[in-house]
């Protein structure tokens, strides 16, 4: 479905220090630097796959999505989406894709979302009967109800994002690029959006590429992740495998019948947190069985669970490692 080979996107950026002197100087001479937003990444995505793009701010995730959706012309490499060259922006290609950006909107600001839906129906040339059915489905799944009749400017962020998603799906795209779709939403709205996106993928077999800083989004939606850092691909594979690779440890969460001295916990593993009757220990995966057995025999354990470390921590560690490696290389 999607094939990317040696994709590069470089920007020429004007640099100017602050101050009046620099401002005047910039009238005569403007130094530029070349920023390598994406520097030779390659990957393939199969039809119907859900893939998460991960990386710190400025890593090149959004730039990659913009190249894939035809907004940006690549500086080098080859990109193909369902047999189309995105930069040509052919109608057949644009009718197959949609890019939803959490920080950009296509809804007409002063008109109700229903007007944008109708506009998209006309632009995407969706037959009226199909449009009616799709809109009914979207209205029901996203709980739009009367929202579509209120001017967009009067909608809350969560309401607006639901309408944005509906507007993006009127033409039933085969490939959906989602750039921070849950940004700024409250926890329950994030969960609702995730459920909807997953259902859309399963029902329509749409290919889905997601960038998000909310690891819950990635964990819930993307069995496969592609990690990009400083424009370079640093991991492509299963999310579970990435977690095991970066943090080959498990968290054991205990609840005790009475207070346990910290020294007793430290004998079992690394103490991540502890309070009066609960504690979290970090132990190597292969030592989980023995640690649990020892804890059950020596401590007043009421309850315990074994978990993966939080994804946020895993990512933070991955990015700090890659920063350290880059600094060492320079």
């Amino acid at each position: 479905m999607i094939s990317v080979r040696g994709l590069k996107k470089y920007y020429r950026v004007h640099q100017r220090p602050p101050g009046l002197k620099a401002a005047l100087g910039a009238l005569f001479h403007r130094p530029h630097v070349t920023v390598k937003a994406v520097d030779g990444i390659s990957f393939d995505i199969r039809p119907g796959e859900r893939v998460g793009f991960l990386g710190p701010n400025g890593a090149g995730k959004t730039t990659t999505l913009k190249v894939l959706s035809g907004l940006l012309h690549p500086s080098g490499g080859e990109v193909s989406v369902d047999g189309h060259l995105p930069r040509r922006r052919e109608d057949a290609f644009l009718k197959k894709i949609m890019l939803v950006m959490g920080q950009k909107q296509q809804l007409l600001w002063d008109l109700p979302p229903a007007e944008t839906f109708e506009l998209n129906r006309a632009i995407y040339d969706v037959p009226r009967e199909q449009y009616r059915r799709t809109l009914e489905e979207l209205t029901s799944l996203l709980g739009l109800g009367e929202l579509v009749q209120k001017p967009t400017r009067q909608l809350s962020l969560g309401e607006r994002m639901r309408c944005e998603l509906a507007a993006a799906l009127i033409h039933k795209p085969k490939v959906l690029f989602l750039d921070e779709p849950t940004i700024g939403l409250d926890v329950s709205m994030q969960a609702a959006m995730r459920d909807f996106i997953k259902r859309y993928n399963e029902q329509h077999g749409a290919t889905l590429i997601l960038t998000s800083h909310y690891m819950d989004d990635v964990a819930a939606l993307c069995p496969r992740v592609i990690v990009i850092d400083k424009g370079v691909l640093s991991y492509d594979g299963a999310l579970d495998e990435l977690v095991r690779h970066v943090r080959p440890e498990k968290r054991v969460v205990f609840r005790f019948a009475r207070e346990v001295p910290q020294i007793a916990l430290a004998e079992l593993g690394k103490v991540v947190s502890v309070d009066s009757v609960s504690a979290v220990l970090q132990v190597r995966t292969e030592a989980v069985n023995s640690t649990v057995t020892r804890a059950l025999s020596t401590l007043p354990v009421l309850d315990l669970t074994v978990e993966n470390p939080p994804l946020e921590e895993v990512m933070s560690e991955l990015f700090s490692r890659s920063r350290a490696a880059a600094e060492a290389a320079s």
Binding site: K66, G70, L94, K95, I97, L99, K104, Q106, N120, I123
Partner: peptide, 9 residues
Amino acid sequence: ALSMRLLRP
């Protein structure tokens, strides 16, 4: 904002 126009056919 031009991006949103460019995404449409």
